[in-house]
Design a protein around this nucleic acid. Sequence first.
DNA 1: GTGAAAGCGCTAACAG
DNA 2: CTGTTAGCGCTTTCAC
Lengths: 367, 367
Amino acid sequence: MTEAVSRPTLEAVAARAGVSRATVSRVVNGGDGVREPLAERVRRAVDELGYVPNQAARSLVTRRHDAVAVVIAEPESRVFADPFFALQLRGISKELTAHDNQLVLLLTEGRADHARVARYLAGGHVDGALVFSLHLDDPLPGLIHEAGVPTVFGGRPDRGAADRAAGSGRRARTGEERGVAYVDCDNRGGARAAVRHLLDLGRRRVAHLTGALDQTSAVDRLDGYRDVMADALGASDPRLVVESDFTPAGGERAMRELLGRCPDVDAVFAANDLTALGALRVLRESGRRVPEDVAVVGFDDMVPVAEQTDPPLTTVRQDIEGMGRLMAGLLLRGLSDGRDGRRPTTGTRDTPGGVILPTTLIRRASA
Amino acid sequence: MTEAVSRPTLEAVAARAGVSRATVSRVVNGGDGVREPLAERVRRAVDELGYVPNQAARSLVTRRHDAVAVVIAEPESRVFADPFFALQLRGISKELTAHDNQLVLLLTEGRADHARVARYLAGGHVDGALVFSLHLDDPLPGLIHEAGVPTVFGGRPDRGAADRAAGSGRRARTGEERGVAYVDCDNRGGARAAVRHLLDLGRRRVAHLTGALDQTSAVDRLDGYRDVMADALGASDPRLVVESDFTPAGGERAMRELLGRCPDVDAVFAANDLTALGALRVLRESGRRVPEDVAVVGFDDMVPVAEQTDPPLTTVRQDIEGMGRLMAGLLLRGLSDGRDGRRPTTGTRDTPGGVILPTTLIRRASA
DNA sequence: GTGAAAGCGCTAACAG
DNA sequence: CTGTTAGCGCTTTCAC
């Protein structure tokens, strides 16, 4: 029972099948150009010996690893407060698995770890990277660019970071971030839909509790809110926007402040479900009924949260797992494109820039 | 900017430093037995060339990878509903990073993936595995044992699985699971503390909403509840135990049933915070006050949940991140022990069996 | 279509 | 203490 100590090699399989190592190698790697009877004999030998290729030896010559790093910046700890992270990882994992790639997880705890991650990526241990770094002015994208590893970002990187990643010296770009591949949901469009829904309900004093504004998702949702408010009501009352931070506690704080400023508020668009959760609590405390007195809409549709609030939360759904899958898919595609010729240093060859996934409004009882 | 195409090799460094490859290798790997001036010259060359060792080449000869697989059974999807998973991963990541090991994440979606995982582990791509598979009769532990990879489990494996993993043919063991390394929190002790607390509050009709009883943690918590009830009150009323499943919805269902069976219940020990959340909702609905009419205690101390319930939840805290760190630590230690001689097939050499981390009761307002 | 031979970049005896 | 010499297990021209 302790014989697994040294695993069979190509050589062993070759011997057993009575062929050369080269032939076994061919069969193991798809089997083109090997006549059927021979191929069959090899396959049998592989089975009988329980042969599994040695990835290290293979990588050494092919210079490929069939492994992708997933980098998650720890300060992005919001990610630990909700299942966002887990879902995205699951999507990524599925896609990578489907293409026989391994997932190497790199969690960072701040500055100190950046260097470590950069070194690892530069070390050529993986074929590409999936990076979550949604904070403004995060140095990581720049470091990763220098590492020269094909990368797809999760969430729209901020412009400064994007330019650095694209290798441009100029900080300010006019248009969209070009040259940086990323996947995000339609934060702005989703926010628009939420606010429009509130307006359609007849509400006029529609407030917004923002997310942490050092993340692009929060900025984009705020922009969406403003789009619709400006459109519908002309100038919107700036007091209706309260900055918060994506947490329930932050939602409470912001809601309290809002109630102080604008006691007549009749609708709230919260930057995410957790924020809505806090807002709901404060609203109840203040004796207001939801949705009769104040309608509330969230964002994310964290189902375990949104379905369990009182009342159940109307919210904007994004396909988190789908985003993960898409990120991995884009990276893998870029990698196989780049197989010959020089590798693209960032994203895919004809880099698609950002891919934006749609959102949908889920109506429950809160609005 | 596109010259990173081929990275410098040991050879290149050796040439630049005017020494042999062996010397460079020595310096790179700790530098024992190389005289200082020489070592310094090598280090400079390394820096100048930006040399990073090729892990594949290294693994090929050392047969080590400095990589550990983390296997998470997806049906274990509870894990996606709360931050448990993320926290544990963070603990693991910290410990692995501290020892320069990489984390390869393997998520499984059920049976089909088991084979894939087993093959991967058997493939010798990693030095060890950390496995989360807390379900009764999960085949994974057995498969993993066959793969012959040193493993530490997260959560006490069930006896059947444990025996299989330990290579014993006999299914039923009398004592603790021996030979299988695992880390768990003191589920039973924590449950005892919770129930004792309720009793100390003067409650006598103390109910328990169980977790999913196909997981050892749920079984252990139930056992703890029974320990104390039997001790304090002699035989406890079996109607006070309602089976649930660790989810808020399950908690609601169970609580409703409990109220039907025993309207006079005056305390509830819920198998986890999510279950308590559901119970709280039903209690409120039914017009009961918490804790005045019914006191409630949870388990886990998922802070974002427990602090945000109404009233804030008294619960049993376990150090989730610490468990992750400990698991990784045990595995790594086992690996370095096993470096020479034959590798331990499961856990560390003098396998400690289970390591149980303490829990503490966190008093908030609900009990 | 198949085999023989030449490494991929590194470590680990073994000499010196 | 340092250098020389063999491979680790695999893929990949290049002949046959």
